[in-house]
Simulated scan of single mutants.
Amino acid sequence: MDWASLAGLLLGLAGILAGQALEGGHLDSLLQPAAFVIVVVGTLGSVLLQSGMATFLRGAAMLRWVFVQPPDLSRTLTHDISIWSTTARREGLLSLERFIDGVQDRFTAKGLQLVVDGVDPYKMREILEVDITTYERRERQAAKIWEAAGGYAPTIGILGAVLGLIHVMENLTDPSRLGGGIAVAFVATIYGVGLANLVFLPISNKLKTIVADEVRRREMLTDVFCSLGNGDNPRVIEERIQAYR
């Protein structure tokens, strides 16, 4: 669990509620189902229209990374690379085949297989870089659904405000119904701006950071596999790894 993410979200919400209380307001005044439906459902519809179903579902699935980040494999990876390079130096590249079945990461297994197959290092780099580019493009597009939501939500909040004011104008002769329309008008704007800046945009930026870290890990592995293919000394490979830290 990433407690910093959870604390950040709760702190942002607490700041708004505390400010509302200090101004003498009540929590009930911020709970407007109509405004929530307008902003949230409208935003989701806009994002789905922009991204398509597959990208939308992938971006929604990535949400768990904000609170439960993917495991940090850097320590075990460094140890594994040391074993690979030493084994290849002593027993040859074919000896690395026994490590492939124990690797759970598809990219790592693919790289090891290319090394074992004796693929030319330049061709190997080309193959792996295409894999990295495809991965990065797919994951970044999925993460951008949250950035898109952060862009649409404030505008849809304004739309909710206009709808609330229209409701007010239609009921000028009935003062008992004016308060509800005005409340929806202002609260819809709060929902739009608040969700964009406290939830959607921070989530997008965090997911982009996680994707960038994974891309950097794969780039490091690409250098390692090409070095193995070239028959570089384990010490040289270790120095290249240090450059990524």
Rank of each mutant, 00 (worst) to 15 (best):
W84A: 11
P121Q: 06
D80Q: 15
Y244R: 14
A60C: 12
V119D: 11
V40N: 05
I210W: 00
D101R: 15
I182H: 05
E170G: 14
D80V: 08
Q113N: 05
V41W: 05
N197C: 10
L163S: 10
A212E: 06
A148Q: 06
V41N: 09
I145W: 00
Q32E: 15
P33D: 06
V168R: 05
E219V: 03
C226Q: 13
L44H: 04
A183Y: 05
R64S: 09
I127K: 01
I127V: 06
W84K: 10
G52D: 04
T87Q: 11
T86Y: 11
Q242K: 15
G25N: 04
G52P: 03
G19C: 06
Q242C: 12
V184P: 00
A61I: 10
V224F: 07
G150R: 01
D105A: 13
C226R: 08
L17Q: 14
V193Y: 01
D117Y: 04
G164C: 14
G111W: 01
R75N: 10
L178W: 15
G24W: 02
V224I: 11
Y152R: 01
A185E: 03
T222R: 04
P154M: 07
V236K: 06
V37N: 13
Q242W: 12
N197G: 10
Y244C: 14
A54E: 11
Y122H: 14
L57K: 05
F200N: 03
L178D: 15
A34D: 07
I83M: 10
Q50F: 09
L201W: 00
L228K: 03
L22Y: 13
V115E: 03
I210M: 05
I158T: 00
Y244P: 12
Q104D: 13
A14L: 14
A18F: 15
R140P: 02
L159C: 02
T87I: 09
R217N: 09
R216I: 02
G15E: 11
V224S: 06
V199C: 07
F56W: 09
D72C: 05
